[in-house]
């Protein structure tokens, strides 16, 4: 009889890898190329104007805009927010069907087939980064031809969220395994990171001390979103550099 620990390890085939991301707010220009790239990569439904007005738009990544100061002396702060892939995620525990669970590489995986649509996970998420298919998605011709074959299309009644482009992660891992080599840092990137013109987003393995992402995550500019909730997010936000503050004081 295997112990619980062995059983868990068997289920998980644990890898020494923890994917994470760094968002440099100093570099973000709010261009929203990431939002577009994410939509294209992950077959996210375009809900249309009427639904979007009702608050049902689905953008796995959104660029939050915060205005500081009074007109005309206004500073705009851009903050791209997407699933923080929490270490201790509140969304995972509340799911009755394990549709939301923690995978072996530190991601909050969402198994669409298991989801019955209680929407509890979306309530529990403090970052409002879970999206629900209120309607069946549809794509006008010829947009249906641009769907990504590596990503399943979600039907009505299912919760979905940022996966850190798990299809790209899996593909890269399989390629590396086939070639019998280690994954190199920066060998592949999620769509949002790939499309960011200012390299405000950096993706990589947080458990590799040499990777770019783990070096940046250790920056003294770094902080986590709503860190005091104890969710242990995998995303680090780098606040704007001191040069900015110095110029404006």
């Amino acid at each position: 009889m295997a112990t619980v620990k062995e059983q868990t390890q068997k289920t998980y085939r644990l890898k020494k890898r923890r994917w994470g991301m760094v968002v440099d707010e100093d570099r973000c220009t709010g261009c929203e190329a990431c939002v577009l790239a994410c939509h294209a990569e992950n077959n996210i439904a375009i809900v249309g104007e009427g639904q979007a007005v009702r608050g049902r738009a689905m953008h796995w990544i959104r660029v939050e805009r915060y205005y500081e100061g009074k007109f005309p002396d206004v500073k705009v702060k851009y903050q791209p927010v997407f699933c923080q892939q929490c270490g201790d995620a509140p969304c995972e525990v509340v799911c009755p069907t394990y549709a939301s669970y923690h995978n072996a590489e530190g991601l909050n995986a969402q198994v669409y087939n298991r989801c019955i649509g209680t929407r509890y996970c979306a309530n529990a998420c403090p970052y409002d980064d879970r999206f629900f298919n209120f309607e069946n998605p549809s794509w006008d011709k010829p947009l249906n031809l641009q769907l990504n074959p590596d990503v399943s299309v979600r039907s009505v009644g299912i919760m979905e969220k940022c996966t850190f482009c798990i299809q790209r992660i899996k593909a890269a891992e399989m390629n590396a395994e086939a070639a019998k080599r280690q994954l190199a840092d920066g060998e592949f990137n999620p769509a949002c990171v790939q499309s960011c013109p200012t390299e405000a987003l950096v993706f990589g393995d947080l458990d590799d001390p040499e990777s770019k992402v783990s070096r940046l995550a250790g920056s003294n500019r770094g902080s986590k979103l709503l860190e005091d909730l104890g969710t242990k997010p995998s995303v680090t936000y780098l606040r704007r550099g001191t040069w900015y503050d110095e110029q404006n004081t």
């Binding site: 995972e92 669970y101 923690h102």
Partner: peptide, 14 residues
């Protein structure tokens, strides 16, 4: 819980 151990929210399996 032991038959299909899945980690969620950093909690123990049991």
């Amino acid at each position: 819980q032991k038959a299909y151990p899945l980690i969620t929210g950093g909690m123990q399996i049991v």
